[in-house]
Design a binder for these strands. Structure first.
Length: 872
RNA sequence: GGGCUCGUGGUCUAGUUGGCUAUGACGUCGCCUUGACAUGGCGGAGGUCCUGAGUUCGAAUCUCAGCGGGCCCA
């Protein structure tokens, strides 16, 4: 049964004994209002705009997303409490191949079976369904999303901005069209960017063959038709005679020059390589360097072109086989060796990429510009900047932004069929699909009226790399008022893509860095330490976890799991520990509420007892520490400090000390209640960003109003003496407990007189006495103790081994020694009439102490002496 | 091959401007059902701080070399 929402001080009979997270979380989720999290454009508060990552709407919010969003929500909530006007937008990065593939799968079609428009609609419908699913999870997780700033990249409102940014960058010369080699996936039939290439190890064959008298080693004989040169190292003596010569390509017969290049490794293969357009990135290098011609041997579908003669139409694998067979029968194939190599593949479908030369759209990469902007951003953790720098430094090609797909932002250009002029739409006519509409004016160059709409579409990163411009309200007119954003949170896996492209685009379009700070979080690994994957069976689904332990427990796991930037192993242990902490907190609050229920709270009661001042001093330190950690996004440390204070300091020490006073009804009870009240209130507020449901529920028993609308805790209590003396108090209690434990006594067993000889007298309001159940006296004078030998500990393994049958006689002799002799034993001792040496470690005297005539036990706490008189 | 990052009890981890007996959690063992909580309390056992060399009165921490893991890239 669900309880009604209630606010304000509870009476103790209203208090449920157990914290039922499922009931509580559902109830609060229903009552919270979206409006409370809206960014207020007219606010006078300082702004805190977050450029959140728009997830790909697969329908499933995975645990890595959850970690990322928890971090965002922690600081979004914290900043709101600190008085900032926070924008926590939610975007959806819709376009791209996975959805196309999914639509084909679900409808049993290929994209060519239906019209482009129909296919797009199918993709849009699926995406909307997925987004709705994921929104539910976001709400269940209690993320304080600003739903008034939601954006969906496939919607006209968003992608018209993508198109606007394209037109602006085209105009300013950043974007150009060119025939250029690009990474190409022949399965997806599209160009892909370097960031989309992944690498796999595989074994291949290195083929040595006779190339017009020169031995050449190649892994890609099928590219023989595309051979445009042979390269050797200039210092390679074997090939001096080839300088300036040309060679005839076997099987094909065209002549190619021999070029010299330092980049050729004389030790690899035969030391002579053939340059083809294009086998790999190195070929592109050489091709540019030596101004070689272009011979295209492979087409977009991965088939051999006409220049391959009789091999035309074969796939590259078939062609390789055929050419090797023909080399063999011509007797020019010398030998074959196995070779380990890394091959670039399409990150989506794992097909090995080809480098093909096509007409494509590009964005110029101006490295220095990006580097400068990256340096103006504060990186958390700092070393992530290095990854960005390394990536920038080794960029060689411009960013290819055109894709040959359907579900994506159209490139808004037409080509005049008569003169080839590029024509663009008016900015006010965006969004625009050039395959469906025509330009309003004739061609400005030749006056022609026949145009071809661009069928290529934009890379998805072209959408998401303006997320920050979108949320800050960019409309093309320079730099928006609230730009740059304050922070970009993201994973380290997309530094070279999303972060890199966002910086590039912001600089190009506004001349400024996109954000003040970037916060980089790690990846979530499975419980076995490996990346989560279905095949490993180590995948954790957030919804499952939330169902079993609640959203707050998952959020705590995210906070405590890892330091910023480092990968985090998933651990059920941490989730269980989190849920236990909530139980503990609930019981602490229950205890406090029961006390408050007896005769209310006096918020101005004088703080009298030492323990009370001690607790407030420790609370003050905790608030300072937690606040500092929050400022630095060190959520693990922040939550750790809260837990430590609540569990160790408040529950295990303070409450144990103050219990007696709270049960009694003297004046100092009010002091303890006020302290409990302050701690309760502060803890709710410090916990609010981490466990919003739990904090809200707990706070509702204390006061009216939502804890999430309270300011962050501002509490200082400076009392170094109370801290030092209170620490002593706690230590004395701990030592006496240990003493009881060692004596086999129950912790509440009564003791007789306990005297503490400390440097200062301490007004502990009898807390110590009640806690350890003894008559406690605090004294500042020196302890007057008489040390008395009360017995002797024999080490029987030493005594027995040394004295054999004289052992008992030896022990009797030792017992007969005086106290003085026992403390400083002689070298020898008379046993059965003989003087025998006393072995080392044979015995140790036991001492007892006598204080004012009574026998006592002595405990030391640093230089403080505590005596305990038994209760006989 | 290059860059980044890391190596601490069985497991995960804190600690690096060099300095008390190396932190905590989980697990484990023992004791305790005391009026918030046994999803608790108290206590114990358990560590070559990856290896080696160096600097130093002193190294988990600094330097060098090596071994090993992870990530990114060639």
């Amino acid at each position: 049964m669900q309880r009604p929402i209630r606010y304000g001080m509870a009476s103790s009979d209203e208090l449920p004994k157990n914290y039922d997270f499922a009931e509580v979380e559902e109830r609060w989720q229903k009552s919270w209002r979206d409006e409370d999290h809206y960014f207020d454009p007219n606010s006078k508060k300082p702004q805190f705009v977050i450029d959140t990552p728009p997830p790909y709407p697969t329908g499933n919010f995975h645990i890595g997303n959850a970690l990322n969003w928890c971090y965002i929500d922690f600081f979004a909530r914290y900043k709101r409490m600190k008085g900032y006007n926070v924008m926590f937008p939610q975007g959806w990065d819709c376009h791209g191949l996975p959805t196309e593939v999914k639509v084909e799968e679900l409808n049993h079609i290929t994209k060519n079976d239906v019209s482009r428009e129909k296919f797009r609609k199918m993709c849009r419908d699926l995406t909307i369904k997925n987004i709705e699913q994921m929104r539910l999870t976001l709400r269940r997780m209690a993320f304080s999303t600003d739903w008034s700033n939601e954006y969906i990249t496939m919607m006209p409102k968003y992608y018209s901005k993508t198109q606007l940014s394209f037109l602006r960058m085209l105009k300013s010369g950043y974007i150009y069209q060119d025939e250029h080699p690009v990474n190409f996936c022949t399965r997806c039939e599209t160009a892909i960017a370097f960031a989309e290439v992944s690498y796999e190890d595989r074994e291949t064959q290195l083929n040595f063959f006779d190339f017009d008298g020169v031995e050449i080693a190649t892994t890609r004989p099928e590219l023989l038709a595309a051979c445009v040169a042979v390269a050797v190292h200039p210092a390679d003596d074997r090939y001096h005679n080839l300088k300036g010569k040309s060679l005839k390509v076997p099987l094909f017969g065209h002549a190619v020059p021999v070029v010299q290049d330092e980049a050729v490794d004389p030790k690899f293969g035969s030391g002579a390589v053939m340059i083809c357009t294009f086998g790999d990135k190195q070929d592109v290098h050489w091709w540019k360097q030596h101004n070689l011609p272009l011979r295209k041997a492979i087409d977009r579908k991965g088939k051999m072109t006409e220049i391959c003669g009789k091999y035309t139409g074969l796939s590259s694998t078939e062609c390789r086989k055929a050419i090797l067979a023909d080399m063999k029968s011509a007797g020019i194939l010398k030998k074959q060796e196995k070779l380990q190599q890394r091959v670039g593949t399409c990150w989506r479908c794992k097909t090995p990429i080809e480098i093909l030369s096509n007409k494509q759209w590009f964005i110029r990469i101006r490295q220095q510009e990006i580097r400068d902007a990256a340096h103006q951003i504060k990186w958390y953790p700092e070393h992530m900047l290095l990854r960005m720098e390394n990536w920038i430094d080794q960029m060689e090609w411009d960013w290819c932004i055109s894709r040959q797909r359907i579900f994506a932002t159209p490139i808004p250009v037409w080509t005049c069929t008569k003169c080839g002029e590029i024509v663009v739409p008016d900015e006010k006519d965006l969004p625009c699909d050039p395959t469906l509409t025509k330009p309003k004016q004739p061609c400005p160059k030749c006056g022609g009226n026949d145009f071809k709409g661009e069928e290529d579409v934009l890379d998805t990163w072209m959408d998401s790399s303006i997320s920050v411009l979108n949320v800050t309200g960019w409309d093309g007119s320079g730099k928006p008022k609230i730009f740059p954003a304050q922070i970009r949170p993201q994973g380290h896996d997309i530094i070279r893509t999303w972060a890199f492209y966002s910086i590039l685009r912001s600089v190009a379009l506004t001349g400024s860095k996109p954000w003040d700070q970037i916060l980089v979080n790690g990846m979530v690994l499975g419980e076995d330490g490996f990346k989560m994957s279905k095949s490993r069976g180590n995948v954790i689904v957030p919804e499952d976890l939330v169902g079993r332990y609640g959203a707050d427990a998952l959020r705590q796991w995210a906070a405590t799991g890892a330091a910023l930037g480092s990968d985090i192993m998933f651990s059920w242990n941490d989730v269980i520990a989190a849920s236990r902490f909530q139980t503990k907190m609930w019981n602490i609050f229950r205890f406090a509420l029961i006390q408050f229920g007896k005769d209310g709270i006096d918020e101005n009661a004088p703080i009298t007892a030492l323990a009370d001042r001690w607790l407030l001093a420790r609370l003050s330190d905790t608030v300072a520490a937690v606040s500092a950690r929050m400022e630095n996004y060190e959520f693990d440390e922040a939550l750790k400090a809260i837990r430590e204070f609540a569990w160790d300091v408040l529950a295990d020490n303070y409450i144990e000390l103050a219990k007696g006073r709270l049960y009694a009804s003297d004046v100092s009870r009010k002091s303890a209640c006020r302290v409990l009240y302050t701690a309760y209130d502060s803890l709710c507020r410090m916990l609010a960003p981490f466990v919003p449901y739990f904090a809200e529920e707990s706070y509702s028993y204390l006061k009216k109003g939502s804890v999430h609308k309270q300011p962050w805790v501002d509490f200082t209590f400076n009392d170094p003496a109370a801290k030092a003396e209170g620490d002593l108090l706690v230590k004395v209690v701990a030592e006496v407990r240990k003493y009881k434990h060692d004596k086999g006594l129950a912790l509440n067993a009564p003791l007789g007189k306990v005297t503490v000889y400390a440097p200062h007298t301490t007004n502990d309001e009898n807390d110590t006495a009640r806690t350890i159940n003894a008559d406690v006296h605090w004294r500042t004078d020196k302890a007057h103790l008489d040390k008395v030998v009360s017995g002797i500990d024999f080490n029987r393994s030493v005594v027995g081994k040394t004295f054999r049958k004289d052992a008992s006689a030896f022990m009797d002799a030792v017992k007969a020694l005086s106290a003085e002799e026992l403390a400083h034993p002689p070298k020898t001792i008379a046993v059965n009439g003989k003087d025998l040496p006393i072995p080392e470690n044979a015995f140790a005297p036991q001492y007892s102490y006598v204080e004012e005539g009574a026998k006592v036990d002595m405990i030391t706490v640093g230089d403080v002496i505590v005596t305990v008189a038994g209760k006989e």
